[in-house]
């Protein structure tokens, strides 16, 4: 009975037949009905900035992973990579919507027309220097082995942060984290099992896996360096200081690499945060060109 109309007719009907913004992530408001009150004593602007950090990591990694669509080594892995990207896109959507709900929209709102949802305005109409992702998620994919190594490292870091974030005083962040941990554990374990196959596989797959590890490890330099904002929000019980996850991450990665017969590189020297402050290499602007180009050329398009 619910499907007497087609899906698109039903969606069109639900939106009053006004047409839907052509590049949106969804038809529904992601936080509809969720209490978005900011906890006492928390600066909404800082909470929003923190949501951008976590949201941008997910959005940028999702974009990198989808570069494998039509190019994966096997069909099942293409489906896997797309599913991981979809989970991350969902997390990004909620986190960017949370940022928008507390009024953190940066310059994006000036460029985006009024009918574009906040999370889409943030995704499509911010420039690279307004993105708060780390270099770990933005680096080019490399070959499949390097992609798997980066996914393993990024999922391990994010899982460790989200596991702690379940206790956040911001109920929206806590709920996003509680849901995300199950997805991230699945991503991490999938990547880890792939790395065992590649590392402990043929001479060629071992060489590529080791090259991937050696290429990804330096990207850990600023992953655990907290910004002042993260420290303040951690003290307020809202955020997670990434440095508190370092030993857990190191132990998980060490275990996987040992089992995969791969050599563990030197842990990179600590560096001050860069990506979290909007300082990126040219690869972020390039990635955003692919992500945002069409929407920026036709910002008012609907369908």
């Amino acid at each position: 009975m619910a499907h007497e109309e087609t899906v698109y007719e039903a969606l069109d009907h639900a939106h009053g037949g006004e047409g839907h913004w052509a590049f949106g992530t969804g038809f529904d408001e992601p936080l509809a009905g969720v209490d978005t009150t900011v906890p006492d004593g928390v600066d909404p602007a800082e909470l929003g900035e923190y949501c951008l950090m976590l949201g941008d990591d997910a959005l940028v990694l999702a974009q990198r992973l989808t570069e494998w669509i039509t190019a994966s080594p096997e069909l099942e892995e293409e489906v896997a990579v797309a599913n991981v990207a979809l989970d991350l896109l969902g997390q990004a959507r909620l986190l960017l919507a949370r940022a928008g709900s507390v009024g953190v929209l940066g310059r994006s709102r000036e460029l985006a027309t009024g009918s574009i949802p906040d999370e889409d305005a943030l995704a499509y109409f911010r420039d690279a220097d307004e993105f708060r992702n780390t270099a770990l998620v933005a680096a080019p994919n490399g070959d499949f082995a390097q992609t798997i190594v980066r996914l393993l490292v990024a999922a391990t870091v994010r899982l460790a942060v989200f596991a702690r974030l379940r206790e956040s005083r911001d109920p929206v962040l806590a709920a996003i984290a509680a849901k995300g941990v199950h997805e991230l554990a699945y991503h991490r374990d999938h990547a880890a099992r792939w790395l065992l196959r590649l590392g402990d596989g043929t001479a060629e797959s071992h060489r590529r896996a080791q090259d991937g590890v050696d290429a990804v490890w330096p990207l850990l330099a600023d992953v655990f360096s907290a910004t002042d904002l993260e420290r303040r929000l951690t003290a307020a019980g809202v955020a997670v200081d990434p440095s508190s996850t370092r030993e857990e991450v190191r132990s998980v990665l060490t275990e996987v690499l040992e089992r995969a017969t791969l050599r563990l590189p030197e842990w990179p020297a600590e560096a001050p945060p860069r990506g979290r402050l909007g300082e990126h290499g040219p690869e972020v602007a390039e990635l955003l060109g692919a992500l945002q180009g069409l929407a920026r050329q036709h910002p008012a398009a609907t369908w």
């Binding site: 009975m1 619910a2 639900a14 969804g26 038809f27 979809l86 969902g90």
Partner: peptide, 23 residues
């Protein structure tokens, strides 16, 4: 009506909403 997504990125939530309202 309160619904919860199965996965964070579940793209079917919008259709579920429309179907519920319609029904």
């Amino acid at each position: 009506v309160e619904i919860t997504p199965t996965y964070t990125g579940c793209p079917a939530m919008g259709v579920m909403r429309a179907d519920l309202v319609h029904a």
